[in-house]
Every structure is written in C-alpha cells, then in structure tokens.
C-alpha cells in the first residue's frame, strides 16, 4: 500500500472505488453505522418520543434479572437443539435416497422436497395452525389412524415447541439440495476402491460418503443454527397478534427474536431491544466460532494434488 502507484494503476484504483461506492455507502449507513448505533443505544433508555437517557449497563443488568429473557433463550435453545440435528438427519436421508435413483426421478423428487420451501413462512404458520390443530388437525387425524391420541400441539405449553420443530421439518428443501449436490460430487472410483477392499454398505457410508460430504454437512449445520436462533416468522404468525392475546400456553412460544421485536416495536423499549440484539449477536458469534473450531477438526478437506493435476 505504501508503494506509489503508477498513473494507470491510480486511474484504475479510482474507478474501482467508483464501482465499490454503493457497497461502501451501504456498509457505513446500514451495517457498521447501525452496529455502533445499536451498541450506544443499548446503554440508554429510549422510547422514540423523549430523547435517549444514558443508563450505562443498566439494560444488560436488567436482562440478567428479566425472567422472560431466560424463557426466550430456553425456548430458542430447545428449538435449535432439536431442529438442527433432526433437519440434518432427515435431509441427509432424503439426499441419500435421491442419489440412488436415476436422474429424471431424482429431479422429480427433488422438486417435491423443495416445493414446501416456496411457501412464505406466514402461510407455513397458518397452514400448520390447521394441520396441528389438537381436535381435528391432519397430523392428529393421521396419528389417530394408528390409534395414537395426538397432543394439543397449538395450545398445550408442553407441546407447542415440538409442534414448531415438526413444522420446521417441512422446510428442508435447501438443505436437501445442498447435500444432494455434495453427494453427486463424490468420485465414483472411491466407492469402487472401497468395494474392492471389501467394505460393506455401512463402511462405505462411514469411510467414504461422510468424509467426502463433511464440509457440506458442516456448512448446513452452521447456517441452519444461525437461522434457528433467529426463528421469528412462523411462530409469530401462529402464536402472536391480536387473536391470541389470551392464550393457554403462556410464554411457551416466546422465541428470542419475537421478544426482541416486542420490546423494540410494541413496547418501544429501543435501548433494551438493542441490548437484547447485542446479546443475540454475542450468542450467535460464540456458537459459530465453537462450531467452526470443532468442525475444522471433524471436516475432511481434500488434499490438493501437487500442480493441480487431476
């Protein structure tokens, strides 16, 4: 950078910044600026009407004592811990089956599995309000065929979150497509070599398939975790709003971002909501870093052949 640039290089650099200008402006106005602003706001009480009042770490201290924060974290953790592994296992099963049929059939089924992911989350929430209806919903009527008396998914506090997890497993399209694409990139000769060595199907899966798709699995776990921690649309549609002001399930569906939204935009506690946002940011950052650290030990990265000859 210290090296002086030639005339042409300087001209090029100037043009480069012209092209980057939208991004740089956006970075300042909508990313870095708000990040800093949100940190400052989190140290204040601000209700949009009177001017912000500095309270130091008061909001953070309040969060520690706010039982609803603990509830929201607990609900979100419960959902994430169930959703991420289940989504991974189900999508992997679907992708493995897709990988065992001919191209045309795989294309058809891939479309079938992806289609639910084209349903806007609000519509997903609405649909599952009906499907999970305790008295007459499709899910419980289906369970009834096997003599199972299904739970009150949408009104029993103990069953609200399992119901949300069930709903989340309907939207596995992207995860399945990513894993299917990874499976198709596993070189065929690795399986042949494994078979020659006498490896059975399970061993081939353990020793060839899993390592070869481990980076895709890792990636899917990370993005699904980040998304799960920010779950909002479906639960807000199902359990919040005018109609459910009086409910029977208490705070069972109060996910973290729902609480953040309520604090910020319904109670206009902008300072407190900013503190909540920063806590979420810290939680996501820590979890992601831990996942990356663990993942780097587990993920198999293919060694690059010298000179890139293949």
């Amino acid at each position: 950078m210290a090296r002086p640039l030639s005339g042409l290089a300087r001209r090029e650099a100037r043009w480069a910044y012209v092209f980057l200008l939208p991004w740089l402006l956006g970075l300042v106005i909508f990313q870095a600026g708000p990040m800093v602003a949100s940190l400052v706001l989190s140290l204040t009480d601000y209700d949009l009407i009177s001017s912000p009042r500095f309270v130091g770490l008061g909001n953070y201290a309040e969060m520690l004592e706010d039982p609803t924060v603990a509830t929201a974290i607990g609900n979100t953790a419960f959902y994430t811990v169930l959703h991420v592994p289940l989504a991974l296992v189900v999508s992997l099963a679907l992708a493995l089956m897709l990988n065992r049929v001919t191209g045309r059939a795989a294309g058809f089924f891939r479309t079938a599995f992806y289609l639910p992911s084209m349903t806007p989350y609000v519509a997903v929430g609405v649909l599952f309000l009906f499907l999970l209806n305790g008295q007459a919903g499709l899910v419980n009527q289906f369970l009834g065929l096997f003599g199972v008396d299904g739970p009150q998914w949408t009104t029993d506090p103990a069953w609200v979150k399992p119901g949300v997890v069930l709903m989340s497993l309907w939207n596995l399209g992207s995860t399945t497509i990513i894993l299917f694409a990874a499976l198709r990139n596993v070189p065929r000769d690795l399986y042949e070599a494994a078979m020659i060595d006498g490896a059975g199907p399970w061993q081939r899966f353990r020793s060839v398939t899993l390592p070869m798709i481990s980076s895709a699995l890792f990636f899917v776990v990370i993005i699904n975790t980040i998304a799960a921690l920010q779950m909002f649309d479906q639960v807000y549609t199902m359990f919040f709003g005018n109609q459910t002001a009086q409910n029977s399930y208490g705070d069972a569906a109060l996910f973290y971002v729902v609480y953040l939204f309520q604090q910020g935009f319904q109670f206009l506690h902008m300072g407190y909501a900013s503190a909540l946002a920063w806590l979420l940011f810290a939680i996501i950052a820590v979890i992601t870093v831990v996942q990356v650290k663990v993942g780097n030990r587990l993920v198999y990265y293919e060694a690059e052949p010298p000179g890139g000859t293949r």
């Binding site: 708000p34 920010q230 971002v257 900013s274 940011f281 996501i284």
Partner: peptide, 8 residues
C-alpha cells in the same frame, strides 16, 4: 445477524 441492526 439481521436482528442486530433492526432497531437502528
């Protein structure tokens, strides 16, 4: 995460 910049 998008939620962080919601308020500002």
């Amino acid at each position: 995460p998008g939620a962080v910049t919601l308020v500002p």
